[in-house]
Design a protein around this nucleic acid. Sequence first.
DNA 1: CAGTATTCTTGCAGTGAGTGCAAGTTGCAG
DNA 2: CTGCAACTTGCACTCACTGCAAGAATACTG
Lengths: 201, 201
Amino acid sequence: MPTSAPPSNARERQKRERRLALIEAAQRLVGERGLDDVTVEEISSAAGLSTRTFFNYFDSKDDAVLGIQEIGVDAEVRAQFVSGGPTGRLMSDLEALVAGFLDHAAPNIEQGERAMRLMIAEPRLVQRHIAWHQRVVAELEALLSERRTARPSPVDDDTIGMVAGLLLRASALAWARSGYEGDAAAHLPEAVAQLRLLLDD
Amino acid sequence: MPTSAPPSNARERQKRERRLALIEAAQRLVGERGLDDVTVEEISSAAGLSTRTFFNYFDSKDDAVLGIQEIGVDAEVRAQFVSGGPTGRLMSDLEALVAGFLDHAAPNIEQGERAMRLMIAEPRLVQRHIAWHQRVVAELEALLSERRTARPSPVDDDTIGMVAGLLLRASALAWARSGYEGDAAAHLPEAVAQLRLLLDD
DNA sequence: CAGTATTCTTGCAGTGAGTGCAAGTTGCAG
DNA sequence: CTGCAACTTGCACTCACTGCAAGAATACTG
């Protein structure tokens, strides 16, 4: 569902195409020559756009290589979590919330996969990726503090947020290890199980 | 112990002083005018050094504001962990290892505290800090894979590494919340307890 | 369909981070 | 004092990134 969704609007379609073209060019060139030997100008003109336009789409070269974009959760999932649901048990509800984020996390599997591979060769990209990840966690934490009024918890927001982030990332890694089998959220229970296994060791 | 330790060597002393002077200047100026309205040149000359020398000490402006430096663990703690000790139970040994890192993490409490405050005002610094944090976790993960030969575990390195990172950060946050009471490692058990509390909810 | 509003692209000019190099300075050992 | 190694500095340079204003493409209205 995320990979498709073709917009009828001509403007939206071009926007999407240009965005993908920039990511494609960035990943290809960086894969060939390395992150520091490719300039934004080269990426832009490979995608048939001006350097200036590149920066209308991405905040930095690194962001384009990773294909970074804002993600969120469905309003209903959000509302349910904030009001103390769906089960009322924090750990289970956290799982549902993280699953909600994962549903929107991978707009294009091929590009995501290439981004993963590039991160191995270019450690700086890992850092950028984690910075993005952190923004997602910050959003999770905002929901947490809203929920707190409906259903208090003895555990710090910090800790809960970090656990949520851990689950998000562990699921994505497990998904990648499986060769992108099913969707990312399907690997969430596995991540939770691993975490429990470690703690109960 | 970390704050003091004056080196007899004149060269080492100057190096330390210059480093601290750069951090001090960076934090002061950024606190007054904001991260993007202070140039490296201003920081450098406020510290009585050239711009070029600034980059002999730090990789970036952000690093100087955070006072980022490489940290590690004592060789003995490292060796013990790698060979499967000290207790043989992974979760406990992980705790010992994280404590070993925490012992070296805060060379100067005042500057660390100011860095924390600046991170609130400048989100970019949080990202940089997390990137640094990630380097520490990467080192932890290297130790993990070494240990694995001595004492295998059913839990992924990724997951263990993330848990270690979580404990590192949660301890630091708890330490900060306590007003920097005792040393950072003293707050580790609290972090572990919180984590267990959440999982067993 | 014509005309207008809106949104997006682009060139331009500029700031400032960060780097390699080579020459000077400073502390150190014999 | 002399030669050595480490460190600092200025210089020239590349390139990421930004604001601005003009122009092009697209959407909207009657």
